[in-house]
Structures are given as structure tokens and as C-alpha cells.
Simulated scan of single mutants.
Amino acid sequence: MNYNFNLSLIENYKSNSQKIRVMSETWLAENVYCPYCGNSHLSKFANNKPVADFYCDSCGEVFELKAKENNIGKKITDGAYSTMIERITSISNPDLFVMQYTKEYQVLNLLVVPKFFFTPEIIEKRKPLSENARRAGWIGCNILISDIPKQGKIFIVDRQHLRNKEDVINDYKLIKNMQTNNINNRGWLFDVLNCINEIPDKEFKLNDVYRFIEVLKEKHINNNHIEAKIRQQLQLLRDKGYIEFLERGHYRKINL
């Protein structure tokens, strides 16, 4: 695979953001398949499409692309905060492609985050633009990519290593079992999943998860029954096939 951006595409552009958008979108359209159904081609929406950048004409899945130079880091800049929250709480939210490119304009990493991993808690509201700005008062947002569980970040290209297509599709199918349309339940499920991911051993005890009670209290300040919610999410993860119940208060990771 050729990981280089096509620099000839940007000869008539002055804005750096426009240059990156044109080169990254063209590269993805020419090289990337649908990670959901495996269709070899993704089609590009018109530039004025407000929700997404690409769609699969086989399964209908839609995708947005965000590209960053060097490290992806902890957060990714996105558009209007209110629009993003509205998208997350509706059925219109697209999957997210996150592309990391080098200063030499080469694709280094490409991952996809399924839409059902988005919760309001991972959307950070930015300060309103100043009264002197052209869009005074406009409020943007950041996607806190580091708060998304690792299971929701499926690599297609990993440090210029192209993963096997079937492995990517299987990863997506496996994690789709995590999908829930209840936003509050989704937030709790993924917060507890992040806690379990922090436990280094394959087998763990209920008390190992209870060590994250204060962390969860900060995220869910209106809930006074944190321990009960933890146990509830462990049961859900068991039912979805991601952990195994061994005995009272004792679990084993399966697909984590």
C-alpha cells in the first residue's frame, strides 16, 4: 500500500486545513474498505454534507474522518458542541475514522471508532468564541479520544502495517455486541469497561473494580449507588460474552 498523500491535489489551495482535508479524504477513498461489511469501496459525500464524509453503498454505514499530524493525543477537535450532542443522542451519528499522518504527509495510523462508543461524557465543550470573532459566541467541542475504551478503537493501519481485512471486520462484529441505544446505560457500560481494562490480570475480583469507585463518582455525580451500578455492568458484560463469572466476586476476561 502507498501511504503517501497525493501532494499534486493541493496546488490550488492556500488553507492548510483544506489541504489536509483534500489529501486525507482522497487517500481514504482510494485505499480503505468498509470495516463493517467489507465492501471494497467507500463513497464520498458532497463537501456540504453536515454529518459525515463517507458512506458505504453496500451496508449504508456512514463515516466521518478526522486527521491529525503526529500524535493523536487525548482529544480531537470537532465542530459545534450542540450539533455533536444532538448527533450522539440520535441515530444520525457516524462512525469515526481517525487518521494520524507524519510531517512528510504519510499515513501512519488509521483506526475506526464505531458510533455506539460515543457518549456525551467524551464530548468536551470548548469556550465560546470571543465577541471579536467572526462567529462570536459559537461553541465548539473536542472528542476525548483517550476516554474511549481500547475495544472501541479498531486499527486498520497500525504504524504503516496494514491489518488483515478479515481481522478488522471480525473485531467490529465482535464489539458490535456492546451496542446499546440507551445513552445513560452506554456511558456506565464503557466507564466500567475502562476500569476493567486498567486491571492487568486476566482474572480479577469485584474489589479490584471497587478500587475505581471514586473515579466513577466523579463521572456520575448524581448517582449514590456506585457499587450497585458496577455489579450491574459486570452482569451486562458477562451476558454480552466479554467476561466470565467464576465464583462469587470472581471474574475472568474473555474477549477483552
Rank of each mutant, 00 (worst) to 15 (best):
A67M: 05
D53S: 03
I85T: 00
N71W: 08
R87D: 08
F63M: 00
I76D: 01
S58I: 11
K75L: 08
I72T: 11
Y55D: 04
A67P: 01
K74F: 09
V62S: 07
A52F: 02
I85M: 03
I88V: 09
C59G: 10
S90H: 10
G60M: 08
E69W: 09
D78K: 14
K66N: 04
D78C: 15
E64P: 01
K66H: 04
Y81A: 06
K75Y: 10
I76R: 00
A80Y: 09
N71R: 13
C59K: 08
T89L: 09
I72L: 15
T83D: 12
F54A: 01
Y55T: 02
D57W: 13
K75D: 08
T83V: 12
Y81M: 11
T89S: 12
C59V: 11
E64G: 10
D53V: 03
K74C: 11
R87P: 06
R87G: 12
V51K: 10
D78F: 14
F54H: 02
S82D: 15
I85Y: 00
N70H: 13
D78Q: 12
V51I: 14
E69M: 14
N70E: 13
I72F: 09
G60A: 11
F63G: 00
E61L: 07
K68P: 06
E69Y: 14
M84L: 10
D57C: 14
T83Q: 13
K66I: 08
L65D: 03
N70R: 13
A80F: 11
L65C: 04
E86F: 10
T83K: 12
D53I: 05
V51C: 07
A52I: 05
E64H: 07
G73R: 10
C56K: 05
A80G: 15
K74N: 15
D78V: 15
G73N: 09
T77F: 12
T89Y: 03
I76P: 03
K66V: 07
Y81N: 10
V62R: 02
S58D: 14
V62P: 01
Y81T: 09
I85S: 00
A52S: 11
A67G: 05
K74P: 08
Y55P: 03
K75N: 09
K68S: 15
C59F: 12
I72Y: 06
V51S: 09
V62F: 04
K68L: 14
F54I: 03
F54C: 00
F63H: 00
I88K: 03
V62N: 04
C56W: 01
F54N: 00
V62C: 05
I88R: 02
C56M: 06
F54L: 03
L65I: 08
G73F: 11
A52M: 06
G73P: 10
G79M: 07
G60V: 08
S58H: 13
G60Y: 06
Y55R: 03
